[in-house]
């Protein structure tokens, strides 16, 4: 096997597994029971899925200009996805838009009841 076809093979594996993970994220969004569980689907397989697709694309393109842009896309995704998930999750928790019956324990409810939380 020549060098280019090995690179192509790795790129193909990255692109395909990235696509499968993104599909799983979409499926999880549809299937999981409440908003908080669905946010997990948005922050995890999708992040790795995107990173794999970026790596696959970088291997196929192979020019410096494109790779720097792809690296930035990856870096910003890692920095920003948790923030977005947190904002949505926090709003959902505070407005009670989640299923309490699915929780095994809830330390935050206890903390809020005793007034520990300063409500910022």
């Amino acid at each position: 096997m020549t060098g280019t076809s090995v690179v192509d093979l790795i790129a193909a594996v990255c692109l395909l597994s990235g696509a499968v993970l993104s599909l799983a994220a979409g499926l999880g969004l549809l299937r999981f029971p409440d908003l908080l569980a669905r946010m997990h689907s948005a922050t995890k397989p999708q992040v790795l899925g995107l990173l794999l697709i970026l790596v696959g694309t970088a291997l196929r393109l192979g020019t410096v200009v494109d790779i720097t842009t792809l690296a930035l896309v990856g870096a910003f995704q890692l920095a920003v996805a948790p923030v977005a998930a947190h904002m949505v999750g926090r709003a959902a928790y505070r407005t009670g838009l989640f299923r309490r019956d699915l929780l095994v324990t809830d330390d935050l409810a206890a903390a809020r009841k005793t007034g520990d939380e300063s409500g910022d």
Partner: peptide
């Protein structure tokens, strides 16, 4: 951890009929 967590969640998403439970911990 990122890879393991992603595979775990993907697997859970594909497991039809399985209801995952959650927890809020401090």
């Amino acid at each position: 951890d990122l890879v393991i967590a992603s595979l775990h969640l993907a697997w859970t998403a594909f497991r039809l009929g399985y209801q995952p439970r959650c927890a809020v911990i401090a």
